[in-house]
Design a binder for these strands. Structure first.
Lengths: 244, 244
DNA sequence: GAGTGGTCTAGACCACTCA
DNA sequence: GAGTGGTCTAGACCACTCC
């Protein structure tokens, strides 16, 4: 199976073999891959070489690992749509999946240099921070940290309890119609806390999206940072759509 | 330096030490990092453990490696703006850098299933493919593969020679005003050819952006796939801006 | 030829999961 | 306690760059 003379690294060859097998659908999403030791026996490679091959699969989002359990074939990517007005819930429902969310915590901080600039408020103004994890089919999908001015939305923390549509709360209680103005896309790696929240290892890249939303009056309403599991989604930006 | 009792992996600790040093600006962009052997001596770690630490730095875009030469500190990320109408050249000039481009090759293929759907043409229609590498300050920045209908733009291949503003050529010679309609963002890993073109190793994630542009009449004009060096840029999507 | 990173092997111990 | 992946060490050889 592995050709040791053609100049192509063994781990390279192995990862291609495994990718082909996964793409052919020999393994179903969620099913367990052969263990490292099994693979090293089967292909007569050292376990570390096998690990290198699997690392690439993990980086490309073909598989995910669970410590003590094994390596599993990942599901297909979700096409997650983003436009001026996007609600996580409708976007996930649109592709026929089951959305869910949980408020991890809410707290207040002083704006500081960076955030005061983003939200266009004073350095010492108070900011409400909301940390929300969103799930698709019970799997953690993304982790959003939202920053809003306390002065503009004083009771937000108690209002948001139980409801996860921030946009709906802002509209209903403050009459504010928040629309996404810009988003920045970067690739990053998870911090320790994100590893637990999103259930991924530090080695898996994440997609980092920073967005600014403004109200009807053109004032900045929300600055939020969302970390997406890179193996779970492609993000589709619609430059026209008003979405919902 | 390295604490072997606190339960944090050594390579983890080392990568944090190195990131802090880079963030403090102890090393300037482009300068060489200590070699693997130097680091393994200095921190009393095995060379492989050091390599694990550096791998993380590479994944996060802090450093890049050149075979046979060494490991070097990467430059700051470029804030690359994308909106309905974006030209690479103006976007890079806007941030005070020096854009450049090179037509790698142009050729024709039959549409096939995938592309005929994207471009909304027939399965057997001919497609013009343009492969362009773009540079920022002489460094490879992204690799774009554009697909356009041969029937609509028969002479495109000869017209594009020497000019890299596809939008300008379409406007001038065909009277078509191409505007970006949607873009899909994914994280991926480079294919072998991209590794050479973008001068990166296979282990470094890339940002994959697939875009559709349409003309005034609403017909699809171009489908393009762009691979960005993940260590070189953040991509900023402007949902309003008409850009240029 | 000396120095760099890239690959491969061998073997060890760990923490975690599951029965 | 057996099996999984996670980490660390030791040592080897390679291709590449630079002098």
């Amino acid at each position: 199976m592995i050709n040791r003379e053609n100049g192509v690294a063994c781990y390279q060859q192995l990862s291609e073999i495994l990718i082909k097998q996964i793409e052919k659908g020999i393994f179903k999403p969620g099913s367990q891959l052969a263990t490292e030791i099994e693979l090293s026996k089967r292909y007569r490679l050292n376990r570390h070489t096998v690990r290198q091959a699997i690392e690439r699969l993990e980086n490309e989002g073909f598989v995910y690992k669970i410590k003590g359990k094994g390596t599993f074939v990942a599901s297909d990517k979700i096409n997650y749509k983003v436009s001026k007005r996007t609600s996580f819930t409708t976007s996930i429902l649109d592709v026929g999946l089951n959305p869910d969310a949980r408020l991890l915590e809410s707290y207040e901080i002083a704006a500081g240099r960076e955030l005061s600039k983003r939200l266009n408020i004073q350095f010492s103004d108070r900011i409400i921070v909301l940390e929300i994890v969103r799930f698709v089919n019970k799997m953690p999908f993304c982790h959003t940290t939202s920053f809003l001015s306390k002065a503009k939305f004083p009771e937000l923390r108690s209002l948001i309890n139980g409801s996860f549509s921030l946009v709906a709360v802002l509209k209903k209680h403050y009459g504010v119609d928040a629309v996404r103005k810009s988003s920045t896309f970067e690739v990053s790696t998870p911090e320790t806390s994100d590893m637990d929240i999103l259930m991924i290892s530090q080695k898996v890249p994440i997609l980092l999206v920073k967005s600014i939303s403004k109200g009807q009056d053109g004032e900045v309403v929300e600055y939020c940072v969302t970390k997406f599991r890179r193996d779970m989604c492609s993000i589709i930006v619609d430059f026209n759509g008003e979405g919902r």
